[in-house]
Protein backbone atom coordinates (compact mmCIF):
# COMPACT_ATOMS: atom_id res chain seq x y z
CA UNK A 1 0.00 0.00 0.00
CA UNK A 2 1.25 3.36 -0.89
CA UNK A 3 1.70 5.63 2.02
CA UNK A 4 -0.28 8.72 1.37
CA UNK A 5 -0.16 11.71 3.62
CA UNK A 6 -3.63 12.44 4.98
CA UNK A 7 -4.51 16.00 4.09
CA UNK A 8 -5.26 18.23 7.04
CA UNK A 9 -8.94 18.90 7.54
CA UNK A 10 -9.87 22.52 7.41
CA UNK A 11 -11.21 23.34 10.83
CA UNK A 12 -12.13 26.94 10.24
CA UNK A 13 -15.84 26.13 9.98
CA UNK A 14 -15.77 24.42 13.34
CA UNK A 15 -16.40 27.76 15.03
CA UNK A 16 -19.45 28.34 12.86
CA UNK A 17 -20.88 24.95 13.75
CA UNK A 18 -20.25 25.55 17.42
CA UNK A 19 -21.90 28.95 17.22
CA UNK A 20 -24.89 27.39 15.54
CA UNK A 21 -25.25 24.88 18.36
CA UNK A 22 -24.76 27.59 20.95
CA UNK A 23 -27.51 29.75 19.47
CA UNK A 24 -29.82 26.76 19.25
CA UNK A 25 -29.39 26.07 22.95
CA UNK A 26 -29.73 29.73 23.87
CA UNK A 27 -33.09 29.88 22.13
CA UNK A 28 -34.62 26.60 23.23
CA UNK A 29 -33.66 26.52 26.87
CA UNK A 30 -34.52 28.64 29.85
CA UNK A 31 -32.39 29.54 32.79
CA UNK A 32 -35.05 29.82 35.47
CA UNK A 33 -35.37 27.23 38.20
CA UNK A 34 -38.78 26.15 39.26
CA UNK A 35 -39.57 27.30 42.74
CA UNK A 36 -42.78 27.45 44.68
CA UNK A 37 -44.68 26.75 47.85
CA UNK A 38 -45.10 23.04 48.51
CA UNK A 39 -48.50 21.96 49.71
CA UNK A 40 -50.33 18.74 50.40
CA UNK A 41 -54.00 18.58 49.53
CA UNK A 42 -56.34 16.65 51.80
CA UNK A 43 -57.62 13.42 50.26
CA UNK A 44 -61.28 13.20 49.35
CA UNK A 45 -63.09 11.27 52.06
CA UNK A 46 -64.00 7.82 50.79
CA UNK A 47 -67.36 7.66 52.41
CA UNK A 48 -69.45 10.56 51.24
CA UNK A 49 -71.95 10.29 54.06
CA UNK A 50 -69.20 10.49 56.58
CA UNK A 51 -69.10 13.80 58.32
CA UNK A 52 -65.98 15.48 57.00
CA UNK A 53 -65.75 18.24 59.53
CA UNK A 54 -64.11 16.87 62.60
CA UNK A 55 -65.33 18.64 65.66
CA UNK A 56 -62.54 20.83 66.89
CA UNK A 57 -62.57 22.94 69.97
CA UNK A 58 -63.03 26.57 69.03
CA UNK A 59 -59.86 27.75 70.73
CA UNK A 60 -57.84 25.33 68.59
CA UNK A 61 -58.85 26.94 65.32
CA UNK A 62 -57.16 29.90 63.73
CA UNK A 63 -59.63 30.85 61.07
CA UNK A 64 -58.18 32.99 58.29
CA UNK A 65 -60.65 34.34 55.78
CA UNK A 66 -59.66 36.18 52.63
CA UNK A 67 -62.47 37.96 50.82
CA UNK A 68 -62.75 38.92 47.18
CA UNK A 69 -61.17 42.30 47.82
CA UNK A 70 -58.17 40.72 49.46
CA UNK A 71 -59.07 41.76 52.99
CA UNK A 72 -58.07 39.33 55.68
CA UNK A 73 -59.93 38.46 58.82
CA UNK A 74 -58.70 36.23 61.59
CA UNK A 75 -61.24 34.70 63.97
CA UNK A 76 -63.85 37.26 62.92
CA UNK A 77 -61.73 40.38 63.27
CA UNK A 78 -59.86 42.28 60.56
CA UNK A 79 -56.16 41.78 60.33
CA UNK A 80 -53.42 43.53 58.42
CA UNK A 81 -51.20 41.23 56.35
CA UNK A 82 -48.09 42.70 58.01
CA UNK A 83 -49.35 41.55 61.40
CA UNK A 84 -50.52 38.13 60.26
CA UNK A 85 -47.16 36.42 60.66
CA UNK A 86 -46.62 37.54 64.25
CA UNK A 87 -50.18 36.70 65.19
CA UNK A 88 -49.98 33.25 63.62
CA UNK A 89 -46.70 32.63 65.41
CA UNK A 90 -48.32 33.44 68.73
CA UNK A 91 -51.01 30.90 67.90
CA UNK A 92 -48.63 28.14 66.78
CA UNK A 93 -46.03 28.55 69.48
CA UNK A 94 -46.31 25.99 72.24
CA UNK A 95 -43.39 27.06 74.34
CA UNK A 96 -45.66 28.99 76.67
CA UNK A 97 -47.94 28.80 79.66
CA UNK A 98 -51.49 27.58 79.29
CA UNK A 99 -53.84 30.30 78.10
CA UNK A 100 -57.56 29.84 77.48
CA UNK A 101 -57.41 32.05 74.36
CA UNK A 102 -54.67 29.96 72.76
CA UNK A 103 -54.94 26.33 71.64
CA UNK A 104 -54.81 23.36 73.96
CA UNK A 105 -51.52 21.61 74.42
CA UNK A 106 -50.51 18.05 75.08
CA UNK A 107 -47.25 16.49 76.15
CA UNK A 108 -45.54 14.05 73.84
CA UNK A 109 -42.19 12.36 73.78
CA UNK A 110 -40.12 12.93 70.70
CA UNK A 111 -37.18 10.79 69.69
CA UNK A 112 -33.98 12.75 69.88
CA UNK A 113 -35.22 15.30 72.40
CA UNK A 114 -34.94 14.74 76.12
CA UNK A 115 -38.04 14.65 78.21
CA UNK A 116 -41.64 15.27 77.24
CA UNK A 117 -42.29 18.29 75.05
CA UNK A 118 -45.45 20.23 74.60
CA UNK A 119 -47.19 20.39 71.29
CA UNK A 120 -50.29 22.34 70.49
CA UNK A 121 -53.48 21.05 68.95
CA UNK A 122 -53.97 24.20 66.92
CA UNK A 123 -55.08 24.12 63.32
CA UNK A 124 -54.89 26.99 60.88
CA UNK A 125 -57.86 27.02 58.59
CA UNK A 126 -57.52 29.11 55.47
CA UNK A 127 -60.66 29.94 53.55
CA UNK A 128 -60.94 32.09 50.50
CA UNK A 129 -63.62 33.49 48.29
CA UNK A 130 -63.93 32.50 44.65
CA UNK A 131 -63.17 36.11 43.77
CA UNK A 132 -59.91 36.36 45.71
CA UNK A 133 -56.95 36.88 43.42
CA UNK A 134 -54.33 34.16 43.30
CA UNK A 135 -51.56 36.63 44.14
CA UNK A 136 -53.25 37.61 47.39
CA UNK A 137 -53.90 33.99 48.27
CA UNK A 138 -50.23 33.10 47.83
CA UNK A 139 -49.25 36.12 49.92
CA UNK A 140 -51.38 34.86 52.79
CA UNK A 141 -50.15 31.28 52.35
CA UNK A 142 -46.62 32.58 52.39
CA UNK A 143 -47.13 34.43 55.68
CA UNK A 144 -48.59 31.32 57.31
CA UNK A 145 -45.78 29.08 56.08
CA UNK A 146 -43.29 31.71 57.21
CA UNK A 147 -44.83 31.69 60.68
CA UNK A 148 -44.33 27.93 60.87
CA UNK A 149 -40.77 28.17 59.58
CA UNK A 150 -39.85 30.83 62.11
CA UNK A 151 -41.32 28.90 65.01
CA UNK A 152 -39.53 25.74 63.87
CA UNK A 153 -36.31 27.66 63.59
CA UNK A 154 -36.66 28.90 67.17
CA UNK A 155 -37.33 25.37 68.38
CA UNK A 156 -34.34 24.05 66.42
CA UNK A 157 -32.09 26.62 68.05
CA UNK A 158 -33.47 25.79 71.49
CA UNK A 159 -33.05 22.01 71.26
CA UNK A 160 -30.11 21.61 68.89
CA UNK A 161 -28.45 25.06 68.87
CA UNK A 162 -28.66 25.20 65.11
CA UNK A 163 -31.10 26.69 62.62
CA UNK A 164 -33.63 24.27 61.19
CA UNK A 165 -32.02 24.07 57.76
CA UNK A 166 -28.74 22.83 59.18
CA UNK A 167 -30.24 19.96 61.16
CA UNK A 168 -29.98 16.41 59.93
CA UNK A 169 -33.04 14.49 58.81
CA UNK A 170 -33.86 12.91 62.19
CA UNK A 171 -33.57 16.21 63.99
CA UNK A 172 -35.79 17.92 61.44
CA UNK A 173 -38.28 15.12 61.87
CA UNK A 174 -38.25 15.71 65.63
CA UNK A 175 -38.89 19.42 65.20
CA UNK A 176 -41.65 18.67 62.72
CA UNK A 177 -43.26 16.41 65.34
CA UNK A 178 -43.42 19.31 67.78
CA UNK A 179 -44.66 21.74 65.14
CA UNK A 180 -46.54 19.84 62.47
CA UNK A 181 -47.65 22.13 59.69
CA UNK A 182 -51.40 22.10 59.99
CA UNK A 183 -52.79 24.47 57.42
CA UNK A 184 -56.12 23.30 56.18
CA UNK A 185 -57.43 24.69 52.93
CA UNK A 186 -61.13 24.38 53.35
CA UNK A 187 -63.55 24.00 50.51
CA UNK A 188 -64.53 27.37 49.16
CA UNK A 189 -67.64 29.22 50.11
CA UNK A 190 -69.15 31.83 47.90
CA UNK A 191 -69.48 34.89 50.06
CA UNK A 192 -69.85 37.79 47.72
CA UNK A 193 -70.58 36.69 44.17
CA UNK A 194 -67.92 36.41 41.52
Amino acid sequence: MAKRATPEINASSMADIAFLLLIFFLVTTTMDVDTGIQRQLPPIPENKDQKTDVEVNKRNIYLVLVNSRGNISVNQSWMDIDKLREDAKRFINCDRADDPTLPEMEEITVEGIKGPVKTSKGIISLQNDRGTTYGRYIEVQNELVAAYNEVRNEAARKYFNKPYDELNDEQQEAIRKIYPQRISEAEPKNYGGK
Binding site: V33, D34, T35, I37, G135, N142, V145, N149
Partner: peptide, 9 residues
Amino acid sequence: PTATEIKKL
Protein backbone atom coordinates in the same frame (compact mmCIF):
# COMPACT_ATOMS: atom_id res chain seq x y z
CA PRO B 1 -46.75 35.60 42.47
CA THR B 2 -43.82 36.26 44.76
CA ALA B 3 -43.12 34.53 48.03
CA THR B 4 -40.29 34.20 50.50
CA GLU B 5 -40.82 30.67 51.80
CA ILE B 6 -40.24 28.91 48.52
CA LYS B 7 -38.60 25.59 47.85
CA LYS B 8 -36.90 24.36 44.73
CA LEU B 9 -38.79 21.81 42.69
